[in-house]
Design a protein around this nucleic acid. Structure first.
Length: 410
DNA sequence: TTTCAGTCAATATA
DNA sequence: TATATTGACTGAAA
Protein backbone atom coordinates (compact mmCIF):
# COMPACT_ATOMS: atom_id res chain seq x y z
CA UNK A 1 0.00 0.00 0.00
CA UNK A 2 2.40 2.53 1.07
CA UNK A 3 5.09 3.20 -1.31
CA UNK A 4 7.60 5.86 -1.56
CA UNK A 5 6.90 8.86 -3.60
CA UNK A 6 9.53 7.72 -5.96
CA UNK A 7 7.72 4.58 -6.75
CA UNK A 8 4.47 6.35 -6.99
CA UNK A 9 6.01 8.78 -9.38
CA UNK A 10 7.31 5.92 -11.35
CA UNK A 11 3.87 4.51 -11.33
CA UNK A 12 2.54 7.78 -12.52
CA UNK A 13 4.92 7.77 -15.38
CA UNK A 14 3.90 4.33 -16.40
CA UNK A 15 0.26 4.89 -15.89
CA UNK A 16 -0.41 8.53 -15.53
CA UNK A 17 -4.09 8.06 -15.32
CA UNK A 18 -3.83 5.99 -12.25
CA UNK A 19 -2.33 8.61 -10.05
CA UNK A 20 -4.39 10.29 -7.43
CA UNK A 21 -3.06 13.51 -6.18
CA UNK A 22 -3.64 15.00 -2.83
CA UNK A 23 -5.07 18.08 -4.34
CA UNK A 24 -7.66 16.30 -6.42
CA UNK A 25 -8.53 13.90 -3.67
CA UNK A 26 -8.64 16.60 -1.07
CA UNK A 27 -10.69 19.03 -3.01
CA UNK A 28 -13.13 16.58 -4.47
CA UNK A 29 -13.51 14.00 -1.78
CA UNK A 30 -12.48 15.49 1.48
CA UNK A 31 -13.22 19.11 0.93
CA UNK A 32 -9.77 20.04 2.03
CA UNK A 33 -6.84 21.70 0.42
CA UNK A 34 -3.75 19.81 -0.60
CA UNK A 35 -1.76 20.94 2.37
CA UNK A 36 -4.40 19.77 4.74
CA UNK A 37 -4.56 16.41 3.08
CA UNK A 38 -0.85 16.04 3.30
CA UNK A 39 -0.94 16.92 6.93
CA UNK A 40 -3.79 14.61 7.60
CA UNK A 41 -2.11 11.68 5.99
CA UNK A 42 1.27 12.32 7.47
CA UNK A 43 0.12 13.03 10.97
CA UNK A 44 -3.14 11.35 11.72
CA UNK A 45 -4.42 11.85 15.19
CA UNK A 46 -5.94 9.22 17.38
CA UNK A 47 -9.60 8.98 16.71
CA UNK A 48 -10.57 9.82 20.21
CA UNK A 49 -8.59 12.99 20.00
CA UNK A 50 -10.42 14.18 16.98
CA UNK A 51 -13.29 16.53 17.24
CA UNK A 52 -16.39 15.95 15.24
CA UNK A 53 -15.08 18.23 12.60
CA UNK A 54 -11.74 16.56 12.60
CA UNK A 55 -13.34 13.22 11.99
CA UNK A 56 -15.21 14.36 8.98
CA UNK A 57 -12.44 13.99 6.43
CA UNK A 58 -11.78 10.47 7.58
CA UNK A 59 -15.40 9.61 7.27
CA UNK A 60 -15.53 11.10 3.85
CA UNK A 61 -12.52 9.04 2.99
CA UNK A 62 -14.31 6.00 4.25
CA UNK A 63 -17.39 6.76 2.23
CA UNK A 64 -15.31 7.30 -0.82
CA UNK A 65 -13.55 4.03 -0.33
CA UNK A 66 -16.89 2.37 -0.11
CA UNK A 67 -17.77 3.60 -3.50
CA UNK A 68 -16.96 0.88 -5.99
CA UNK A 69 -16.28 3.40 -8.70
CA UNK A 70 -14.38 5.78 -6.56
CA UNK A 71 -11.20 5.96 -8.50
CA UNK A 72 -12.93 6.03 -11.81
CA UNK A 73 -15.07 8.92 -10.76
CA UNK A 74 -12.10 10.76 -9.51
CA UNK A 75 -10.25 10.17 -12.71
CA UNK A 76 -13.22 11.46 -14.59
CA UNK A 77 -13.13 14.54 -12.49
CA UNK A 78 -9.50 14.91 -13.17
CA UNK A 79 -10.07 14.67 -16.86
CA UNK A 80 -12.86 17.18 -16.72
CA UNK A 81 -10.75 19.48 -14.72
CA UNK A 82 -7.98 19.24 -17.22
CA UNK A 83 -10.37 19.88 -20.04
CA UNK A 84 -11.81 22.89 -18.36
CA UNK A 85 -8.39 24.17 -17.62
CA UNK A 86 -7.29 23.80 -21.18
CA UNK A 87 -10.40 25.52 -22.36
CA UNK A 88 -9.77 28.41 -20.11
CA UNK A 89 -6.22 28.65 -21.19
CA UNK A 90 -6.97 28.61 -24.84
CA UNK A 91 -9.88 30.89 -24.82
CA UNK A 92 -9.82 34.25 -23.27
CA UNK A 93 -13.51 34.23 -22.77
CA UNK A 94 -13.43 31.96 -19.88
CA UNK A 95 -15.89 33.39 -17.49
CA UNK A 96 -18.06 30.79 -16.09
CA UNK A 97 -16.43 27.82 -17.65
CA UNK A 98 -14.89 26.75 -14.46
CA UNK A 99 -18.32 25.83 -13.31
CA UNK A 100 -18.68 23.13 -15.85
CA UNK A 101 -16.36 20.81 -14.13
CA UNK A 102 -17.74 21.40 -10.75
CA UNK A 103 -20.67 19.15 -11.15
CA UNK A 104 -19.76 17.56 -7.91
CA UNK A 105 -19.71 20.82 -6.16
CA UNK A 106 -16.06 21.39 -6.47
CA UNK A 107 -14.62 24.69 -7.12
CA UNK A 108 -12.03 24.08 -9.71
CA UNK A 109 -11.83 27.69 -10.59
CA UNK A 110 -9.63 28.34 -7.67
CA UNK A 111 -6.46 27.17 -9.14
CA UNK A 112 -6.83 28.38 -12.64
CA UNK A 113 -8.83 31.49 -12.78
CA UNK A 114 -7.14 34.66 -11.82
CA UNK A 115 -8.04 35.82 -8.40
CA UNK A 116 -9.71 39.12 -8.00
CA UNK A 117 -6.92 41.52 -7.84
CA UNK A 118 -7.31 42.54 -4.30
CA UNK A 119 -3.68 43.01 -3.76
CA UNK A 120 -4.25 43.55 -0.13
CA UNK A 121 -2.76 40.25 0.75
CA UNK A 122 -0.17 40.38 3.37
CA UNK A 123 3.06 38.81 2.33
CA UNK A 124 3.63 35.59 4.11
CA UNK A 125 6.02 35.83 6.98
CA UNK A 126 8.90 33.44 6.68
CA UNK A 127 10.89 33.06 9.81
CA UNK A 128 14.60 32.82 9.41
CA UNK A 129 16.28 29.71 10.80
CA UNK A 130 17.87 31.75 13.54
CA UNK A 131 14.52 33.12 14.49
CA UNK A 132 13.07 29.68 14.63
CA UNK A 133 15.94 28.47 16.71
CA UNK A 134 15.46 31.33 19.08
CA UNK A 135 11.78 30.66 19.36
CA UNK A 136 12.41 27.01 19.97
CA UNK A 137 14.85 27.81 22.69
CA UNK A 138 12.29 30.05 24.24
CA UNK A 139 9.74 27.32 23.91
CA UNK A 140 11.99 24.89 25.68
CA UNK A 141 12.32 27.23 28.54
CA UNK A 142 8.73 28.17 28.63
CA UNK A 143 6.20 26.59 26.34
CA UNK A 144 3.56 28.98 27.54
CA UNK A 145 5.23 32.34 27.64
CA UNK A 146 3.53 35.23 29.27
CA UNK A 147 2.44 38.19 27.20
CA UNK A 148 5.39 40.00 28.53
CA UNK A 149 7.75 37.32 27.34
CA UNK A 150 6.08 37.26 24.00
CA UNK A 151 6.50 40.94 23.76
CA UNK A 152 10.14 40.67 24.58
CA UNK A 153 10.67 37.89 22.14
CA UNK A 154 8.97 39.83 19.43
CA UNK A 155 11.13 42.80 20.13
CA UNK A 156 14.33 40.86 20.21
CA UNK A 157 13.55 39.00 17.06
CA UNK A 158 12.04 41.95 15.36
CA UNK A 159 8.82 40.12 14.79
CA UNK A 160 5.25 41.02 15.29
CA UNK A 161 3.77 39.94 18.57
CA UNK A 162 1.06 38.08 16.73
CA UNK A 163 3.67 36.19 14.82
CA UNK A 164 5.29 35.03 18.01
CA UNK A 165 1.94 34.10 19.48
CA UNK A 166 1.00 32.20 16.38
CA UNK A 167 4.30 30.48 16.33
CA UNK A 168 3.86 29.23 19.87
CA UNK A 169 0.34 28.08 19.16
CA UNK A 170 1.38 26.26 16.06
CA UNK A 171 4.44 24.79 17.60
CA UNK A 172 2.65 23.47 20.64
CA UNK A 173 -0.02 22.00 18.49
CA UNK A 174 2.39 20.37 16.11
CA UNK A 175 4.62 19.06 18.81
CA UNK A 176 1.61 17.54 20.41
CA UNK A 177 0.68 15.78 17.25
CA UNK A 178 4.16 14.45 16.81
CA UNK A 179 3.95 13.10 20.30
CA UNK A 180 0.68 11.39 19.58
CA UNK A 181 2.26 9.61 16.73
CA UNK A 182 5.38 8.75 18.61
CA UNK A 183 3.49 7.38 21.51
CA UNK A 184 1.22 5.45 19.29
CA UNK A 185 4.13 3.96 17.54
CA UNK A 186 5.90 3.34 20.77
CA UNK A 187 2.91 1.46 21.98
CA UNK A 188 2.86 -0.52 18.84
CA UNK A 189 6.49 -1.31 19.14
CA UNK A 190 6.37 -2.34 22.71
CA UNK A 191 3.40 -4.54 22.08
CA UNK A 192 5.22 -6.15 19.28
CA UNK A 193 8.04 -6.90 21.60
CA UNK A 194 10.35 -4.24 20.43
CA UNK A 195 12.35 -2.28 22.89
CA UNK A 196 13.54 0.65 20.92
CA UNK A 197 10.52 2.81 21.23
CA UNK A 198 11.06 6.48 21.80
CA UNK A 199 9.35 6.15 25.11
CA UNK A 200 11.64 3.43 26.17
CA UNK A 201 14.57 5.42 25.06
CA UNK A 202 13.68 8.46 26.95
CA UNK A 203 12.36 6.64 29.92
CA UNK A 204 9.02 8.24 30.38
CA UNK A 205 9.50 11.19 28.28
CA UNK A 206 7.47 13.50 26.38
CA UNK A 207 6.33 16.67 27.69
CA UNK A 208 4.53 18.80 25.26
CA UNK A 209 7.66 20.76 25.22
CA UNK A 210 10.05 17.99 24.75
CA UNK A 211 9.75 17.80 21.05
CA UNK A 212 10.80 14.35 20.31
CA UNK A 213 14.42 13.61 20.66
CA UNK A 214 15.32 17.15 20.16
CA UNK A 215 14.85 18.04 23.72
CA UNK A 216 17.38 16.92 26.17
CA UNK A 217 15.52 16.69 29.35
CA UNK A 218 13.83 19.92 28.95
CA UNK A 219 11.89 21.62 31.51
CA UNK A 220 8.35 21.86 30.68
CA UNK A 221 6.52 23.76 33.16
CA UNK A 222 3.37 22.48 31.69
CA UNK A 223 0.36 24.49 30.93
CA UNK A 224 0.08 28.06 31.80
CA UNK A 225 -1.73 29.63 34.57
CA UNK A 226 -4.93 27.81 35.01
CA UNK A 227 -5.39 26.43 31.57
CA UNK A 228 -4.09 22.96 31.28
CA UNK A 229 -3.60 22.35 27.71
CA UNK A 230 -0.56 20.21 27.70
CA UNK A 231 -1.67 19.08 31.05
CA UNK A 232 -5.07 18.33 29.81
CA UNK A 233 -3.35 16.23 27.28
CA UNK A 234 -1.59 14.31 29.91
CA UNK A 235 -4.67 14.02 31.92
CA UNK A 236 -6.58 12.76 29.03
CA UNK A 237 -4.00 10.20 28.34
CA UNK A 238 -3.92 9.02 31.83
CA UNK A 239 -7.64 8.86 32.00
CA UNK A 240 -8.02 7.13 28.77
CA UNK A 241 -8.12 3.63 30.12
CA UNK A 242 -10.95 4.46 32.38
CA UNK A 243 -12.86 6.35 29.81
CA UNK A 244 -12.39 4.19 26.82
CA UNK A 245 -15.06 1.65 26.42
CA UNK A 246 -13.72 -0.20 23.53
CA UNK A 247 -10.66 -2.11 22.79
CA UNK A 248 -7.50 -0.44 21.80
CA UNK A 249 -6.29 -0.18 18.37
CA UNK A 250 -9.26 1.00 16.46
CA UNK A 251 -8.40 3.07 13.50
CA UNK A 252 -9.42 6.62 13.26
CA UNK A 253 -12.21 5.80 10.91
CA UNK A 254 -13.77 3.18 13.01
CA UNK A 255 -16.06 5.35 14.93
CA UNK A 256 -16.95 7.59 12.09
CA UNK A 257 -20.50 6.54 12.09
CA UNK A 258 -20.91 7.53 15.63
CA UNK A 259 -19.11 10.72 15.03
CA UNK A 260 -21.30 11.74 12.23
CA UNK A 261 -24.36 10.87 14.09
CA UNK A 262 -23.40 13.38 16.58
CA UNK A 263 -22.09 11.10 19.19
CA UNK A 264 -19.66 13.50 20.55
CA UNK A 265 -18.59 11.22 23.28
CA UNK A 266 -15.12 10.78 22.08
CA UNK A 267 -14.42 8.60 25.01
CA UNK A 268 -16.41 5.94 23.35
CA UNK A 269 -14.63 6.21 20.14
CA UNK A 270 -11.81 3.86 19.83
CA UNK A 271 -8.48 5.47 19.92
CA UNK A 272 -6.51 5.00 16.85
CA UNK A 273 -3.50 3.17 17.99
CA UNK A 274 -0.92 1.19 16.33
CA UNK A 275 -1.54 -1.69 18.62
CA UNK A 276 -4.21 -2.40 16.15
CA UNK A 277 -1.58 -3.57 13.79
CA UNK A 278 -1.91 -6.85 15.43
CA UNK A 279 -5.57 -7.45 15.20
CA UNK A 280 -6.20 -6.85 11.64
CA UNK A 281 -9.03 -9.12 11.10
CA UNK A 282 -12.38 -7.61 11.71
CA UNK A 283 -11.96 -4.23 13.06
CA UNK A 284 -11.58 -2.14 10.04
CA UNK A 285 -15.20 -2.22 9.23
CA UNK A 286 -17.49 0.65 9.37
CA UNK A 287 -19.95 -0.82 11.71
CA UNK A 288 -17.75 -2.92 13.72
CA UNK A 289 -19.26 -3.89 17.01
CA UNK A 290 -17.74 -2.25 19.96
CA UNK A 291 -14.88 -4.13 21.33
CA UNK A 292 -15.33 -5.36 24.78
CA UNK A 293 -11.77 -5.97 25.60
CA UNK A 294 -10.37 -3.59 28.15
CA UNK A 295 -8.27 -0.85 26.80
CA UNK A 296 -4.59 -1.12 27.05
CA UNK A 297 -2.87 1.23 29.40
CA UNK A 298 -1.95 4.38 27.71
CA UNK A 299 1.73 4.73 27.82
CA UNK A 300 1.47 8.12 26.33
CA UNK A 301 -0.54 9.25 29.25
CA UNK A 302 1.82 7.69 31.66
CA UNK A 303 4.68 9.39 30.08
CA UNK A 304 2.98 12.68 29.98
CA UNK A 305 1.93 12.39 33.52
CA UNK A 306 5.40 12.02 34.76
CA UNK A 307 6.64 15.19 33.33
CA UNK A 308 9.38 16.89 35.11
CA UNK A 309 7.94 20.07 36.28
CA UNK A 310 11.02 21.85 37.16
CA UNK A 311 10.58 25.21 35.64
CA UNK A 312 9.13 27.75 37.85
CA UNK A 313 6.27 29.85 36.88
CA UNK A 314 6.86 33.50 36.84
CA UNK A 315 8.92 36.23 35.56
CA UNK A 316 12.21 34.73 36.45
CA UNK A 317 11.95 31.96 33.97
CA UNK A 318 10.08 34.21 31.73
CA UNK A 319 12.81 36.66 31.38
CA UNK A 320 15.32 33.92 31.33
CA UNK A 321 13.55 32.58 28.35
CA UNK A 322 13.45 35.83 26.62
CA UNK A 323 16.89 37.03 27.37
CA UNK A 324 18.73 33.94 26.43
CA UNK A 325 16.94 33.37 23.28
CA UNK A 326 19.27 35.14 21.03
CA UNK A 327 22.49 34.41 22.70
CA UNK A 328 22.11 31.28 24.67
CA UNK A 329 23.76 28.24 23.35
CA UNK A 330 21.21 25.81 22.40
CA UNK A 331 20.97 22.22 23.23
CA UNK A 332 18.20 22.17 20.83
CA UNK A 333 18.51 19.91 17.90
CA UNK A 334 16.49 21.24 15.14
CA UNK A 335 13.34 19.41 14.52
CA UNK A 336 13.86 19.78 10.88
CA UNK A 337 17.02 17.84 11.04
CA UNK A 338 16.01 15.27 13.52
CA UNK A 339 12.58 14.43 12.43
CA UNK A 340 12.55 14.25 8.77
CA UNK A 341 13.50 10.93 7.65
CA UNK A 342 11.65 8.07 6.40
CA UNK A 343 12.32 4.73 5.17
CA UNK A 344 9.05 3.58 4.05
CA UNK A 345 8.36 -0.04 3.84
CA UNK A 346 6.79 -0.85 0.61
CA UNK A 347 4.40 -3.15 2.19
CA UNK A 348 1.28 -4.44 0.70
CA UNK A 349 -1.33 -5.10 3.22
CA UNK A 350 -3.79 -5.84 0.54
CA UNK A 351 -2.45 -8.83 -1.18
CA UNK A 352 -3.58 -9.18 -4.67
CA UNK A 353 -4.26 -5.53 -5.16
CA UNK A 354 -2.31 -4.68 -8.20
CA UNK A 355 -5.04 -2.80 -9.86
CA UNK A 356 -5.12 0.68 -11.12
CA UNK A 357 -7.10 1.61 -8.10
CA UNK A 358 -4.53 0.30 -5.80
CA UNK A 359 -1.96 2.11 -7.75
CA UNK A 360 -3.80 5.32 -7.44
CA UNK A 361 -4.31 4.92 -3.78
CA UNK A 362 -0.71 4.12 -3.37
CA UNK A 363 0.22 7.31 -4.97
CA UNK A 364 -2.20 9.17 -2.83
CA UNK A 365 -1.23 7.75 0.47
CA UNK A 366 2.34 7.04 -0.31
CA UNK A 367 5.16 8.63 1.54
CA UNK A 368 7.51 11.01 0.02
CA UNK A 369 10.90 9.77 -0.68
CA UNK A 370 11.96 13.26 -0.18
CA UNK A 371 11.12 13.06 3.42
CA UNK A 372 12.81 9.75 3.67
CA UNK A 373 16.01 10.93 2.22
CA UNK A 374 16.38 13.99 4.33
CA UNK A 375 17.60 12.28 7.32
CA UNK A 376 18.12 8.70 8.16
CA UNK A 377 18.57 9.10 11.84
CA UNK A 378 14.94 8.76 12.56
CA UNK A 379 14.16 6.29 9.95
CA UNK A 380 12.85 3.90 12.49
CA UNK A 381 10.40 6.44 13.67
CA UNK A 382 9.36 7.02 10.14
CA UNK A 383 8.99 3.36 9.64
CA UNK A 384 6.71 3.24 12.55
CA UNK A 385 4.70 6.08 11.21
CA UNK A 386 4.54 4.34 7.92
CA UNK A 387 3.28 1.22 9.54
CA UNK A 388 0.70 3.22 11.32
CA UNK A 389 -0.57 4.83 8.19
CA UNK A 390 -0.33 1.59 6.44
CA UNK A 391 -2.70 0.24 8.96
CA UNK A 392 -5.15 3.03 8.39
CA UNK A 393 -5.17 2.47 4.71
CA UNK A 394 -5.46 -1.21 5.09
CA UNK A 395 -8.45 -0.85 7.29
CA UNK A 396 -10.01 1.65 5.02
CA UNK A 397 -9.70 -0.62 2.14
CA UNK A 398 -11.05 -3.50 4.08
CA UNK A 399 -13.96 -1.47 5.13
CA UNK A 400 -14.46 -0.34 1.60
CA UNK A 401 -14.61 -3.87 0.40
CA UNK A 402 -17.46 -4.69 2.65
CA UNK A 403 -20.95 -4.96 1.35
CA UNK A 404 -22.63 -3.07 4.09
CA UNK A 405 -24.21 0.14 3.10
CA UNK A 406 -23.05 3.23 4.69
CA UNK A 407 -25.63 5.27 6.41
CA UNK A 408 -23.63 8.12 7.58
CA UNK A 409 -24.97 11.54 7.27
CA UNK A 410 -23.08 14.73 7.06
C1' DT B 1 -9.33 36.11 27.12
C1' DT B 2 -6.60 32.25 26.16
C1' DT B 3 -5.85 27.92 24.18
C1' DC B 4 -6.73 24.59 20.97
C1' DA B 5 -8.25 22.00 16.77
C1' DG B 6 -8.76 22.39 12.25
C1' DT B 7 -7.83 24.47 8.15
C1' DC B 8 -6.14 27.55 4.43
C1' DA B 9 -2.82 28.90 1.38
C1' DA B 10 1.86 30.55 0.34
C1' DT B 11 6.07 28.73 -0.07
C1' DA B 12 9.70 25.15 -0.01
C1' DT B 13 11.30 20.88 -1.53
C1' DA B 14 12.08 16.91 -4.30
C1' DT C 1 4.40 19.01 -10.80
C1' DA C 2 3.12 16.77 -6.48
C1' DT C 3 3.88 16.82 -1.86
C1' DA C 4 5.57 18.86 2.63
C1' DT C 5 5.96 22.70 5.60
C1' DT C 6 4.32 26.42 8.16
C1' DG C 7 2.44 31.21 9.36
C1' DA C 8 -2.06 32.79 9.87
C1' DC C 9 -6.81 32.51 10.62
C1' DT C 10 -11.55 30.85 12.48
C1' DG C 11 -14.57 29.13 15.73
C1' DA C 12 -15.33 26.55 19.88
C1' DA C 13 -14.46 25.58 24.63
C1' DA C 14 -13.17 26.75 29.19
Amino acid sequence: WLTSLKSSRRARKCAPNSALGQRLFGETILGLTQGSVSDLLARPKPWHKLSLKGREPFVRMQLWLNDPNNVEKLMDMKRMEKKAYMKRRHSSVSDSQSCESSSAGIDYSQGASPQPQHQLKKPRVVLAPEEKEALKRAYQQKPYPSPKTIEELATQLNLKTSTVINWFHNYRSRIRRELFIEEIQAGSQSQAGSSDSPSARSGGRAAPGSEGDSCDGVDTDGPPEGKPSGGAEAEEHSNAPAKSQGGPGEPAFEAGEEALRGARSSEKAEPFQAESLEDTDDEGRLRAPRQSSPPAPRRAGDALETLPNSATEGDASTSAASTSVLTGESSYKSKESSEKSSSVPSTSSTPGSGSQKANSLQSLFGFSEAASSRNTRDSSLRKKKAANLNNIIHRLEKAASREEAVEWEF
